[in-house]
Amino acid sequence: MEKSQAASRIAPLEPPYTPELEAHFDRIMPPGVPPLLLFRTIATSERAWRKFSAGSLLDRGPLSLREREIVIDRTCALAGCEYEWGIHVAIFAERARLTDAQVRATVLEAADAACWSDAEQALIAAVDALHHHTTWKETEFAALKRHYSDEQVLEIIQLCGFYRTVSCFANALALPLEATAARFPV
C-alpha cells in the first residue's frame, strides 16, 4: 500500500461532532487527544461506527496489557497495517514493557524468536495460525492452552478478528499514517 497519500479514500468527519459522538470519542481517547483518523472515517457512517464500536474490544480484558499488545501488534503486522501497528506501538509498547527487539520481532521475526518467553511464543504462533489458516492445529491449541485459560483463548480469537478488521479498514481506506505513530522496522 502506498503510504504517501495525503488523504483517506473516504473523507473523515471534522469537528464539531454530535454530542453523542464527541462523548464516545472522549471515552476511548486519552484526555486532550483528538480522535484518530480511523475513528473519524468509520464514524462517517452511523451504522458502521455503531457496529465497529460495539466490538467492545477497546477495553481491558482477561489478557495482560503486554499479551494484548503482542496479539494486536502481530495481527496488524501480518495484515500489513502499519497505521494501526504504529499507533499501538507508539502508545502502548513502553507501558506493555515491550523491548525494541520485541517490537521489531512483531513485524520481522518468527514466533519462536529468542526475545519471547515460552508463553509468548505460543501466543504469537497462535496469532500466526489464525491469520494464515483461521484455525489451530491440535498441537498449536495445546501449546496455547498450557499458558492461557479458556477466557483468555476466546479473547485472543476476538482480538485477532477485530484487529484484522481494523487492518482492513485502515488499509482499504488508505489511511495516512498518524504523525505520532511508529513506523514498521526495515
Rank of each mutant, 00 (worst) to 15 (best):
R104W: 14
L58C: 08
A113E: 11
G32Q: 08
H147I: 06
F39S: 04
P30Y: 04
E155A: 12
A179E: 04
S8I: 07
W85G: 06
A11C: 12
T18C: 10
V103D: 03
D73M: 15
Q5Y: 02
I156P: 04
C168N: 14
C168K: 15
W49D: 00
I91Q: 11
K3A: 03
L123Y: 01
R97S: 14
R183S: 09
G86N: 04
E69Y: 05
P176V: 02
F92E: 14
A96R: 05
A111H: 04
F162S: 06
D26R: 12
E67F: 15
Y83K: 13
A54Q: 13
P35W: 05
L130R: 10
Q5H: 02
T135H: 03
I28P: 05
G161I: 01
L154D: 04
E20F: 06
H133V: 09
I42Y: 05
I28G: 03
H24Q: 04
H88G: 13
A96C: 09
A143G: 04
R183D: 07
G80H: 05
R9Y: 05
E120T: 01
A172M: 14
W49G: 07
T75A: 05
A129C: 01
E2F: 01
R66A: 13
L175I: 08
Y163R: 08
S8D: 10
Q121S: 07
L130C: 07
P16T: 05
A7P: 03
S45T: 11
I124L: 15
A172P: 00
Q121D: 08
E20V: 10
A129Q: 01
C160G: 11
G61E: 00
P176Y: 05
Y17T: 02
A48D: 12
N171T: 15
A93N: 06
W136F: 10
Q5T: 13
H132F: 15
A111N: 07
L78N: 01
W136Y: 01
R74E: 00
E109C: 11
K3G: 09
L37P: 09
K3N: 07
L58D: 13
Y148L: 13
E155P: 00
R40S: 06
Y148N: 08
K145I: 06
Q102P: 01
S64I: 02
A110K: 08
A126W: 09
K3T: 14
S4Q: 02
P185Y: 05
T134C: 07
F184H: 10
I87S: 07
F169G: 03
I10E: 02
E20G: 09
A172D: 12
R60N: 04
P34D: 02
A90T: 01
I70S: 04
A122F: 11
D112Y: 00
G61R: 10
L13E: 02
A77I: 02
S56I: 00
L130F: 15
I87T: 07
T99I: 06
W85I: 09
L36P: 01
I42K: 02
S167Y: 13
S45G: 08
Q121E: 00
E14W: 00
F162A: 09
A119P: 08
S117A: 12
A111K: 00
A170M: 05
L36Y: 03
L175H: 00
T139M: 14
R9F: 02
L38E: 09
A48R: 06
H132C: 14
A122V: 06
D150Q: 13
R146S: 10
Y83N: 13
E2M: 07
A143Q: 02
Q158Y: 10
E22S: 11
H131W: 12
T165E: 12
A48Q: 08
P31N: 10
